[in-house]
């Protein structure tokens, strides 16, 4: 497995966790929990974008590993 695909895999897991966090934020009836989940989802999203940038860099350095 190449480095870029490893990073991509982690990114995908993180995206799924982010989606779950947003679901929890929507589902919970407790305002405090809702806020915590929303904040966590936002932070996770920004980490996903950071990883995305890194994947783009790797792919531009080594275009032969582009794609899945």
């Amino acid at each position: 497995m190449t480095v870029s695909s490893q990073v991509k895999q982690t990114m995908a897991s993180l995206k799924s966790a982010h989606a779950n966090l947003e679901t929890f934020a929507l589902n919970t009836q407790n305002e405090q929990a809702k806020q915590l989940y929303t904040q966590a989802a936002q932070d996770t999203q920004s980490i996903v974008s950071a990883l995305e940038n890194r994947v783009n860099d790797i792919e531009s350095e080594e275009p032969q590993y582009k794609g899945f």
Partner: peptide, 24 residues
């Protein structure tokens, strides 16, 4: 299980990213 699963996914991702930081 969704709650626990998500929690452990987050933990796993965190460990993965730390590993990337060490290996690059």
């Amino acid at each position: 299980q969704t709650l626990k699963l998500t929690y452990f996914t987050l933990k796993k991702c965190q460990a993965d990213i730390e590993l990337f930081a060490l290996s690059t």
